[in-house]
Amino acid sequence: MSPKPLLRLTVNGDALELLVSPQQTLLDVIRDQVGLMGTKEGCTTGSCGVCTINNARGEAILSCLTPALEWDGQSITTIEGLERLGDLDAIQKSFVHYHAVQCGFCTPGVIMSAKAVLNRHPRPTDEQINDGMAGVICRCTGHIKVKEAIREAHAFAADPAAKP
């Protein structure tokens, strides 16, 4: 076996150098090596969206469907990267306020998908929300409150001191 290749990856602003195996997906590296357990493994087929992270352009990406080495030199944001010094991101506050959570397993993937929608459309239409969220499934709380939280997240973005 050849020595493990080096992966240079910036995760939530931290520049990391990791020795990884080509056999690892980006999700494997995030969870098993970086130790960030917010990002979940779900279907591993591209159907459920619970492994969603954001790339450097703030777009939703499925971390379970991409080999880790494809991300050398890249920068990603996981659910852990949204909160700043104890202050939740606007979308997280909105999820709390609208109670867009039930068991919580899919929530990191749902929020990172929602974040990607808001990165492109700060005041998204229903169609933009539906398009951005079609690839994530919540099997317990349903999607109505999730949509509400995304639609109204701009209020928390406009007032950073607002508490959910």
Partner: peptide, 8 residues
């Protein structure tokens, strides 16, 4: 597929 998949 989804916007997630189309982003990749």
């Amino acid at each position: 597929a989804s916007s997630h998949v189309r982003n990749m």
